[in-house]
């Protein structure tokens, strides 16, 4: 009923978007492997998922700031999942990142180094097996560096480029890579921000788009879709002009 996809891994399952994706995949009939850095909070999510869906769920610890980048997670997965979604990220505080190198590094490692290494390690195994879907949650913020959040944006840009290369490499193997670029999403990350309603998605919308992109493999998706033309235009703005508007 869901095209042979039986087991799905969600890394960053204690985020609002991760939770929504996990529930949507469970609805879809998947057995779930949930990974997050805080076991106590993950327990809350696994219990909720079990009660609501009666589905099978296992919990796994994964912190991308660990020495090994969290890659030892892979040794705890049995079986190797058919789908792996990485939701891990950190918005950070741009002003703080500018002053404090360690803070900037945390943002870079959390949005780029960690997720990229995880996807890379999973890709090795998916390639060997000859199939599977890797989904990376990047961001429209990675399309162009803006003065107001370029530390986060540049890390997402790195992740987007990594996923793009990985997609090309795996094309022949039967494994597929989906890049998800949300615009604004109403979550803990954006709590208290005044977001334009028409451009702002719910975590459930992101989850539905992810499940759809798994079933009918897509390369790059924007959620909401209006972000695609918006980013198309934004990428075309000459740097000379963008420089002045990018404080927004």
């Amino acid at each position: 009923m869901n095209g042979g996809i039986e087991t799905a891994l969600v890394i960053g399952a204690t985020s609002d978007i991760g939770r929504a994706i996990a529930h949507a995949l469970a609805e879809d009939g998947c057995v779930l492997q949930l990974a997050a850095r805080d076991p106590a909070r993950l327990e809350r999510e696994t219990r909720d998922l079990r009660v609501r869906t009666r589905g099978a769920v296992t919990a796994h610890r994964c912190d991308v700031l660990d020495e090994d980048g969290g890659v030892s997670l892979l040794d705890t997965l049995d079986p190797l999942p058919d789908v792996a979604v990485c939701v891990v990220g950190r918005l950070g505080d741009q002003a703080k990142s500018q002053r404090d190198g360690a803070a900037a590094e945390r943002v870079m490692r959390t949005n780029y180094v960690g997720p990229a290494l995880l996807m890379g390690a999973l890709a090795e195994r998916f390639e060997r097996r000859g199939g599977g879907v890797l989904v990376g949650i990047s961001s429209v913020a990675g399309e162009r560096g803006r003065a107001s959040n370029y530390v986060y944006g540049s890390a997402k840009a790195g992740f987007t480029a990594f996923l793009s290369g990985l997609r090309g490499r795996l094309a022949a193997s039967g494994a597929h890579v989906v890049t998800v670029k949300p615009g604004f999403v109403r979550t803990r990350m954006t709590d208290g921000m005044d977001l334009p309603a028409r451009l702002t998605a719910t975590p459930e919308e992101v989850a539905a788009a992810v499940v759809a992109a798994i079933h009918r493999p897509r390369d790059v998706i924007y959620v909401r879709r209006v972000w695609r033309p918006i980013m198309f235009v934004l990428r075309a703005v000459p740097e000379r002009v963008f420089k002045r508007m990018s404080r927004l």
Binding site: E45, R47, D48, V51
Partner: peptide, 15 residues
């Protein structure tokens, strides 16, 4: 809004 436990015999829900 998490559900915590459900006992399918007695119908007891903890949420």
């Amino acid at each position: 809004d998490r559900m915590r436990a459900f006992d399918a015999v007695t119908g007891r829900l903890d949420c």
